[in-house]
Design a binder for these strands. Structure first.
Lengths: 357, 357
DNA sequence: TTTAGCACTTTGATTAAAGGAGTGCTAAAC
DNA sequence: GTTTAGCACTCCTTTAATCAAAGTGCTAAA
């Protein structure tokens, strides 16, 4: 698809995107000739720009403004034209000081990553602790608190556990809980989380005799817990950075963004983007999310021992300093993975056994 | 301080604040006479307004606009003039549906409280789970996973639970865990979290015989969990609601707010505001926080058994529908407290100082 | 194929004028 | 003494008009 662009067109496109990223003003033919990098007249450049526009890489805000890149233009830029950015000493120092902090705790690392990222790039940062896709329920454990309250613990295959306090109007005791626990384990233990649906859980009701009244709260909690387990913890830092970019002064855009930050699900879906294990760049509405119009999301998964444990990234206007952002994200994501990897020390979560039991 | 206001001045002030809260436009003398509630000419009202301005309750955006309340004006309004707002059927239903969810888990309740609050009031909601300094460990529960792994669950007095996977090189089985659990419960259950220090935990080592090797990961976990439990978790919902109020279109204000939401410490400090146990209203820069200029924070602590376990509130423009907000917050805060500590007639949760086992 | 030249469009900033809202003050009425 | 009608004044907002700047597309020549 891209081969249709002559080297000269590519060079012009690159120059336009670079300039637009830097200034935010539409760039005209004259500005390019003045930058000395082309020995062409503005008229020639105008012709090329007109063709780039016809091909869909550029657009004009209005008849007589300069050109700005379209989503396709940015796409081509990041795929083929963008140069690597070498992080400065100061930037490296900032990133390292965070990574060197003596904690191998993923939560903390990811939390800090967001802050550092927002600070360094001057875009809003996102950081997510991500549970790996396939997960099973290992077992349930019920702990009596008093006759109207017990604690439900759901232990998952990926070494995580969810707890939930359950209040019940039907008095319970150790024996009842034992019984309940067996039924629950028979029904749900060992199953993949995704196969635990509401209708499936309903079947439990029959097995509980006089305690079938307990089933509905429990079903709800199991269902919630399953949902929660699939829910990842998304942090967003530096929301106020959005305001530094005029594209978000339009209050409609800003509202879209803030709404998305609030809801989070949409954002998490975008982060699920499979594919590459390197930095992923989503430009504008590429993935069909309306609220992303005019914005780009750049992120990289954090992979430890072949498992995705989270991701860090940045969200900002399409007119984003991609090369710097990509370098920073790559460095940070890899750095966190490194920090997580070594030293199996006390109290840490052990690496997953291939089989237990 | 307030006695200097004649009843008529108070009525006029109230009418102005009410009108301004509703429309957001400065209100002039004519508008008040047209509202039929005063049998006075606009000239008389103008005189009163001029005096109210001299006293510091009103101000004019410019020479020939109407008047708007000053911070002092709002203060007097909420302290003395504001009428109670009766929540509508629909609003009550919304609040109740959240409270009725059969979970006594504070985290979830507070999480949902924020969402419901933002939705109901149309202002940005804040919800904080505040560990009261005083929290106790109710009990421990150990669940075997396989001979080298078990799950440690710590149940706290304030209805929260922490879990941790423990891997051990010393093979364990149900009996060992039972024994461990007893030792743990003897040592730690019922104690205030703040009294659980590292040296104290170390003493456990002696009681465990051949399993004393297990103690160190457990100690680390308990210690971590205690720390985590003391951390306050501030959630902010409905940030995009800010954009519905023209006072935040001024991008400076908006940036201040978003910055404050990002940092959180400042906000947490404001929430620490002691004093009343009812709804607290902070207007503008009253507490010396620059970023709060033009904004108000309304919140109420959630108190269970005399202990503050969190708070819910709302943040928005000074021109806020205080009466509705206050009603909603009061209802929700009390409702959560109830849900955490249901009526004793059901004989449910024993007060935390009760003996355990 | 490239370029110089030029007419054309659109934006943004500036200015001027008109309209509106609300006030403060004065003097008269209650 | 209080209240009110009347009126001049101030300041904001909107609209329209003008002007300069920026950038383009097109044509014709190099």
């Amino acid at each position: 698809m891209y081969y249709e662009l002559s080297p000269r067109k590519q060079a012009i496109l690159k120059a336009i995107v670079d300039a637009y990223i830097e200034t935010g003003d539409p760039v005209g033919s004259k500005a390019l000739t003045q930058s000395k990098q082309f020995v062409l007249s503005s008229a020639t450049i105008r012709n090329e720009m007109a063709e780039l526009e016809a091909l869909g890489y550029l657009e004009q805000p209005h008849t007589s403004a300069g050109r700005i890149p379209t989503e396709l233009g940015y796409r081509f830029y990041v795929d083929a034209l963008m140069q690597d950015y070498a992080l400065s000493q100061g930037e490296l120092a900032e990133l390292n000081s965070m990574l060197k902090a003596k904690t191998a705790e993923l939560d903390k690392l990811i939390q800090n990553a967001g802050k550092v990222m927002a600070n360094l790039t001057n875009y809003t940062a996102i950081a997510v602790k991500q549970s790996s896709g396939k997960n099973t329920v290992t077992r349930f454990s019920l702990t009596l608190i008093d006759e109207n309250n017990f604690l439900l613990v759901m232990v998952c295959g990926n070494r995580s556990a969810k707890t939930r306090f359950v209040r019940t109007d039907i008095p319970v005791n150790e024996e009842v809980l034992e019984m309940l626990s067996q039924v629950l384990n028979n029904f749900v233990a060992g199953r993949d989380l995704s196969t635990i649906t509401l209708p499936y859980l309903m079947q439990m009701e029959n097995c509980l005799g006089q305690y079938s009244g307990l089933v509905s709260p429990i079903i709800k909690f199991v269902y919630d817990a399953v949902g929660e387990e699939n829910q990842r913890d998304l942090r967003i830092d530096g929301v106020d950075k959005l305001l530094e970019y005029p594209e978000f002064l339009d209050q409609g855009k800003l509202k879209d963004m803030l709404g998305m930050f609030d809801r989070k699900e949409e954002l998490l879906e975008l982060l699920d983007e499979e594919g590459t294990n390197d930095v992923t760049i989503l430009i504008g509405k590429e993935k069909g999310v309306q609220a992303m119009e005019g914005s780009s999301l750049v992120f990289k998964k954090i992979v430890v021992d072949g498992k995705t444990v989270g991701a860090v990234g940045v969200i900002g206007p399409c007119r984003m300093d991609y090369s710097k952002v990509v370098s920073a994200i790559r460095y940070l994501s890899d750095g966190i993975a490194d920090a997580m990897h070594p030293r199996p020390s006390l109290g840490e979560i052990p690496p997953p056994d291939d089989n237990h039991k």
